[in-house]
Design a protein around this nucleic acid. Sequence first.
RNA 1: UACCCCGUGGUGUAAUCGGUAGCACAGCAGUUUUUGGUACUGUUGGUUCCUGGUUCAAGUCCAGGCGGGGUAACCA
Length: 559
Amino acid sequence: MTDAADSAPSDFIRDRIRQDLASGKVQQVVTRFPPEPNGYLHIGHAKAITTSFSIAQEFGGRCNLRMDDTNPGAEDQEYVDAIMDDVRWLGFTWDALYHAADYFDQLYAWAEQLVEKGLAYVDDQDAEQIAANRGTVTSPGTNSPFRDRSVTENLELLRAMKAGKFGDGEKVLRAKIDMAHNNLNMRDPVMYRIRHMHHARTGDAWCIYPMYDWAHGQSDSIEGITHSLCTLEFEHHRPLYDWFCDSLGIYKPQQIEFARLNVEYMLTSKRKLLLLVEGGHVDGWDDPRMPTLRGLRRRGYPPQALVAFARHVGLAKVNGTHEMALLEHFVRDHLNKHAQRRMAVLDPVKLIIDNWPEGQVELMQAQNNPEDPGAGTREVPFGKELWIERGDFMEHPPKDFFRLTLGREVRLRSGYFVKAEAIEKDAKGHITAIHCTYDPTTKGGNAPDGRKVKATIHWVSAQHALDAEVRLYEHLFTDPDPASADGGDFLKLLNPVSKQVGRGKLEPSLKEAKGGEFFQFERLAYFYCDHIDSKPFLPVFHRTVTLKDAWKKAQAKAK
RNA sequence: UACCCCGUGGUGUAAUCGGUAGCACAGCAGUUUUUGGUACUGUUGGUUCCUGGUUCAAGUCCAGGCGGGGUAACCA
């Protein structure tokens, strides 16, 4: 990595932390990643995770994973498990795993304290009345008629709420702050609501559940979080976060907000992602086209690439959108160094070597990874009939095409030089086979007389080829910014060819490919052996990202 | 028409106490190459949103504009 920012990131959050360390305000940095287990993690979370965990690592601190499970109606154990799995997959290890639900007793005790201080009250208004009396961004709210109940009455009512004396929605506990505050979050925010629901962690012990604002800062405080990092939309909550800690007189962490991650062609709204899944526009939450961590994993994006990307994009307060090309750069960068090379022909046409002895098979030595000599070599069978890529031959080529054409010699990668001599066509004029001759002195790919060829193409022995399913993926959307589709209808921006399933002729060694392995199919793209749909000796490959293709680009430009 | 946050090349970001705009990706050109990949080299592109002000000196400070984003769930 040549980018200095990747080894020593510099941003406003790290600056702040250095200050706090230097001033002695904090001794050891403690951060946390606090997802609500109500959905799957996506690429945006990868940035949040990388940020909090990396910062803790860099400053010799700790980072907790905390399930923000304060709303039993939305959460599920399945998500808790998936979240832990995804964080581990990214390569991070939490110092402690906590659940906001574990703090319910403490939270309740603090709530009574606030009531006793006259800073919280029980409100009998229903949700609609509360919303109506909150006012608007331009007009102040009005006090609840129940706002001035006595401490004694509030305490009795709160205890009755906790004891289950009321039905859902009948009463709430509210902080008593200022109904005219210009920050709507400060207009007597709801702290507890009544929900007679079973909680995955606390069972039926509670029928009142804390709201985010009443739980989050206090959870941070209990855990001794020094820097509570979150996204920009929580800026307006910071005054309330501070108010609760100050009113309680407890340790107050510093909340710092940064811009969330946006990437071209990707959506990270939970609601929109759900529409894609439920509408059958993708094959589930782990569809390789989804921006979920599980989807990206099946696409073949290495976690190291995601982390490198997240570190590179940095932390700032401006909401922007990153180019897909940047993400793909990190994916290619990692895969180039670590993916073994294989040969595969996805759009095959037969190449027949006329002067090759009938029935003879030779094993060619092929390098597994030119970027990593330690990866060794493998044997690839070579015979009289081979599959080559249809696009690697042109009968009437433009002058800048230097692959195979009649009368021209090219190199078969790790094989021999061959020269095209004739072609066979069907009734419609489609090429069905190309006849060529090979030079026996060029085994391995070099001519003893030193003559050069302009191109090297890949091939697979027809006799030995593995016929396997190959899934080609492209952007899910045709527009880089699907979120701002006309009328919000992002579904009409769906790319109709985002997934194409086909079969390819693969070199026989790929029969042994295991789910979870990734390869570079030379001259084409990086491919991931799917860990879900592959079966022993029946691998299924997902195209992760294509190789850069200067020829294709030049052609596109010529048009 | 309330409050909060923000405004640096196409994109994203950097620039100690204010010292004369850097990096990555993308683009372009070339070298190397048994992947038209990789690597390497060079290069285009910025009146640092605008206008004033303070200063020897402003992307950094101040004022006023303009522009963008966020906020009104018993969600997080």
